[in-house]
Structures are given as C-alpha cells and as structure tokens.
Design a protein around this nucleic acid. Structure first.
Lengths: 345, 345
DNA sequence: TTGAAAGCGTTACCAG
DNA sequence: CTGGTAACGCTTTCAA
C-alpha cells in the first residue's frame, strides 16, 4: 500500500483524497469498466439506463474528474501540442498570431503547452519536449531544431513536427516563412524611389535576432547591384536612444531608413522630426508590421504589411498532419509581405 | 472515441516503438529499477560506476526519454501550472505580464499550460482544468471562478489556486488587482483640472469587458459628488470608427475623454486633431498603459501608468504557495496605477 | 549493490 | 449486456 496519509492535523478543511473511478464504481455498485463506459459514452457497449444514472450520480456526488495523464498513458498518445517560445516576444504581430493559433488548437481539443526554451540547445530541448510526449510540435525558430532533434520527437510519438522558418529541417514538416522577404519588399520599395544610402534599424534588445537578421539580409539582397549602400543601425527601443541616433543623423549621410518594425520606425521618425529633419524630404522612413501606430503618425508611416496565414489555418494543418503524418507537406509561404506606400517615403 | 490501433500502415519509415525504461534495462543488462536510479541520480541508493555507465550508454543509444505522464501518475503530482486565458488579449501590457510570468514559471521548472476557456462557465471550466491535475492554477479573470470550482480544483490536487481580481474568491488565494483604480486615477486627474463632462471610451471588441467595466466604474466613483458627468462611449479600434466619433464630437458637449487604453486614446486623439479640434483646448484626452505610442504623439498623451508586479514575483509566490498551501495570503495589490500628466490634458 | 513486484488511474479485451 | 483482468511506463519499497 502507499502511505495512506494518516489524517493530517485536525483543522484542515478537506483532507479527502482525490476520488478515482474506483471510488465511483464502489459508490455506484458497479465495476470500474462500467464507470468508464458510462462516462465516456462508449457506443460499442450498451449499459442500462438505471445503471448509467447511478454512475453519473455517484461521479457527481464525489466530484470525480478523470485523470488526463492516466488516460494518455493508457491510450498511448496525448493531445498535447507543444509550442516552444522565445524569452521575449518579437513583436505584436507575432503575439497576435500565436494567440490565434492557441485558440484554434484548443478549439480542436488540443492541449497547448508553451515551453520556454531556457537556453537549451536544439537536442537538449527536443529531449525535454519529448518527455511530454506531445502529439505535435510547432516550432517558430525560438530554438534551432536539428534533424536529430526531430528524430527524437518523432520516436517519442510526435505525429507532427512542424517548423516555420526560412529553411526546411530534415524530417520535419517545414513551412516556409522567410523573413528576408520583408526586407526585400522594403529594399525594393526604397530603391525604386531613388534612395541610395539606406540605414537598417536593428533592435539592440535580445529576442528578435532570428527575425531582424534575415530582414537585413533581405534588404541587402534587394539592393545588390543597384549601387545603393546598406548601413546597419543598432537601436534600443527608447526615446533617448532614438534621440541620440537622430542627433548624429546628418553625419551618417543616409537618405532612407528601414526599421525592424513600426515601433522602431516611429521612434526614429519622431526623433528625426523633433531634431528638425524633414521626412521624407531629408530622409525616408519605413517600418514593418503595419501597426496602428504608424497610421496615426504624421507623416503617415510607409510600411511592409505582413499577413501571417491565420492561426486558424495553421491549427487545421496541424490537425491534418496529426491524422495523417505521411501527407505531403504544403509549400505555400505562410507569410505574405508587401510594401505599403504612405507619406514617409 | 478513437480506436485506431497503434500499428501503422506497412511501408511507414520507422515503425519502431518508443523506447521505454524496460528497453534500456534490457540493453544494459540490468533491472528497470536500476535504470530509474541511475537516470534520476537517486542518492539513497548507490550504484557502481560501471553499471551507471552501461545504463547511460544504453539510454543514449536507444534515444530513451522518460515519459512525463507516467512519472506524474506514479508520483501523484504534476508540475503543471494552468493559466486560463481569454480569447483575445486585453492589451499589450497584459500580454507582456503573462509572458514574463510564463518565463519565470518555466525557470522554476513548472510546465505552463495555457487553457483557452471556450465559453465554458466557471464550474465546467474548473472540471476541465482539473483533468490535467495542475499543481497550481493562476486565474486572471478570463473565467469567473466560483467557490465550487475552487473546491473541485483543490480536491483534484491543486495546491495553489490563485485569482487576480477585484474581489476574493472563497477558498482561493486571492490577490487584489482592482482595475477600478485605473479609472479612479484618471477621474481624479481630470476632475482636478476642472473638466466636468467626461467621456469614457470602451472597446466595442469583445475581450476587455472584464477590465473596461471596472475602469468605467472607477471613473464614476472618482467623479461622484463633484457635479461632473460621465458618458460611456463605445468605440471600435479602427480609424473609421474614431473618425465617425470625432465627427459627432461637438454635439456631445464633452470637455474631456478617458480611453480604455492608450491605443484607443491615440486613435481618438488623432481623429479629433484631424477634425480640427484643439487638444487639450477643446477636449482633454487621457489614455492608460503608458505605451510608447502615446509618448510619440503630439501633444504627448497623458495617461495612467500601470505597473503590474513583475511576473517573476508572481511566479515565486506560486512556488511558495505550492510548497506551503496554508501560508497566509498576501494582500498587497499587484497593480500600481498613477496618473501621468503630459500635454493632452 | 541489484532485482522483483506492487501499484498510480485509465481503458480494451474477452469471458461470463 | 456486464464485469474481471491486464497493461500502459514509471518509481519505490522490500528482499536477496
């Protein structure tokens, strides 16, 4: 026997142990199997109505709630979808997308587990995730997933290992999401308008590197061969930092700037205006994300609009892959990016 | 119920079953018990170094990963902290707070499960949560938790049921977070400056009701007895809606407006300016949240700054309550609110 | 120092 | 139509 807690100190409110299906069965005067059948509405077996009622009443009276872990253990599979997350959100857009995905997954009856990857490397992380025996893992690049990591997950029972990112991972169902395209949109937009010395604002804060790097690369790519220059500009997300950058702006000799997202863009735009610069006359400013923020500035901020395929769609994809892991991967990029011309460029 | 046998169709690449501790034991030529001892570094038992090595190598070779559900089942407790979430985020601030909390909990080795409450009522939701046997539940008011719900959770093994909200829930460890204080700050601020016809912008979008209602109530409370009026103003978070509201503004006869958060405030502020109004001359505008957005507007947006006690602290509180469920609840309000005067009031 | 065995709560199978 | 029994993977007590 296990250590039956010998009546904890008097005064405790309810030292009652948590009721199990055995307790329900005993109270209803039936077997555990019958309890299971009744509570799960198993159609393959027919139980008499009086019995059903007795079982239901017993469960109600005891406040019985089935134990998900025991169920999974027996069933050999969970309904857990694991979402590895980075320390810091990389932007409002991403947060919104993640939220939508969670909601949609829950709606499909999955249990969403967010797993913060505390600086583990890809394989350590994969092993930690595998302990939960998730039926699916959807990775946004917070952790660099390796083919070995994917293998560990699949062997632990994951039916779907889905990665979103610029390049596919061997063994995983990889959906293309190429942040370079955001930069490319901006680069093309600016070059077409004749700008030739282009600054690119990169967040100094840790977190968005996985997004900001490729966006910079995208700008470089768009600009290649046009004779235009690209100058990386690290910037902290504060008014002071923006002011300092604006102060040394004339010395930089830039005629345009593309910022990691609209927040950084507006921060700098404001600082430039306050420093007496003319936008887009002296310098064009472009952001990304098409946030409310930018539309409310004057001049209105030109931006790269990013549409992530609705979380709803991704959730349905997860569900399909779980049901049929061998289906051929889809290749459409989940992210649509296009430049929106307003008044700041 | 599903009845798909775990036997995959022939031709599947790797139908290898997931390795268990039995497999490791067999390969290492020891018993399952020994495997458990070695892999968990059990200090009460000493295993010879050669044996340890054999076990470790076997585990490595097979790619063995322990099964969290089985472990919890045996242990009788999980490390799951359940976070009920609403459909839509109620604002950037809240999102940030939630993120910090998740990170801190993970750091304390908890498994964070976000549970979207799909329109379940308090007791249904509590039962659904209880299936996971969380060791703690931290509720932000996405679902109205009842004393019965709390009881179900506690009886299912939850050591800590923590609610954040205006009023305590019987049986739960309730931390005061009173959104009315935000409204009160704004109300006091506006009344002190002589404004007497105060509009309060409430989001038309579903989601923030649980926050916006109390904030409105707080304004009313602050204004009571001063002879000032309070007028609720539903507003969608779009430029069109704000424009429409600004168009009928003169007819409303308001001399000040407090918006649910800085986004709504700036939206309206911009629309008023574009309509030719003077701020704060004709109308004062105040927001909440102290977002970057408001600081970048001209005139700079007056706001109510809200500091949620760092998620870190809440995570540590959870950890303490889990360790000692009978500790006396803390009563300090987790939220600090104070008006910040800028240029728009 | 190691191994055998008893459960944890659930459901599937197969007798009654 | 119903109920006993075994098994899921793991930890831990007890015995060798």
């Amino acid at each position: 026997m296990t250590q039956t807690p010998p009546r904890p100190a008097a005064g405790s409110p309810a030292p009652r142990p948590v009721p199990t299906s055995t307790d329900v069965a005993r109270l209803a005067g039936v077997s555990r199997a019958t309890v299971s059948y009744v509570l799960n509405n198993t159609s393959a077996v027919r139980i008499s109505e009086p019995t059903r009622r007795r079982v239901r009443e017993a469960a109600e009276e005891l406040g019985y709630v089935p134990h998900a872990a025991a169920r999974s253990l027996r069933a050999g599979r969970t309904r857990i979808v694991l979402l590895p997350t980075a320390h810091v959100p990389v932007g409002p857009l991403y947060g919104h997308f993640l939220n939508e995905l969670q909601w949609a997954l829950r709606r499909l009856d999955y249990t969403v587990v967010q797993y913060a990857s505390m600086g583990l490397d890809g394989d350590e992380a994969a092993r930690a995730w595998a302990e939960l025996r998730p039926v699916a893992v959807v990775s946004f690049g917070a952790v660099e997933l390796t083919p070995q990591g994917v293998d560990v997950l699949k062997r632990s029972g994951a039916q779907a290992v889905i990665t979103l990112g610029p390049q596919p991972v061997e063994g995983a169902h990889s959906l293309p999401v190429d942040q370079r395209r955001v930069g490319r949109c901006a680069g093309v937009h600016l070059v077409e308008r004749g700008y030739r010395r282009i600054g690119v604002v990169l967040p100094e804060e840790p977190g968005p590197e996985l997004f900001s790097g490729p966006r910079l690369e995208g700008v470089r790519h768009a600009v290649a061969g046009t004779g235009a220059d690209v100058v990386p500009l690290p910037l902290a997300r504060t008014e002071e930092a923006a002011g300092a950058l604006a102060a040394r702006w004339p010395g930089l000799g830039l005629d345009a700037v593309f910022a990691y997202d609209d927040e950084y863009a507006v921060l700098l735009l404001r600082a430039l205006l306050d420093a007496g610069a003319s936008v887009p006359g002296d310098t064009a400013v472009m952001g990304a994300g098409d946030l409310l923020l930018g539309r409310l500035m004057r001049p209105r901020l030109s931006t790269v609009r990013i549409d992530m395929e609705a979380g709803q769609h991704l959730a349905e994809l997860v569900d399909r892959v779980v049901a049929d892991p061998d289906r051929t991967p889809e290749n459409r990029d989940l992210m649509a990016a296009r430049a929106i011309h307003r008044e700041s460029t």
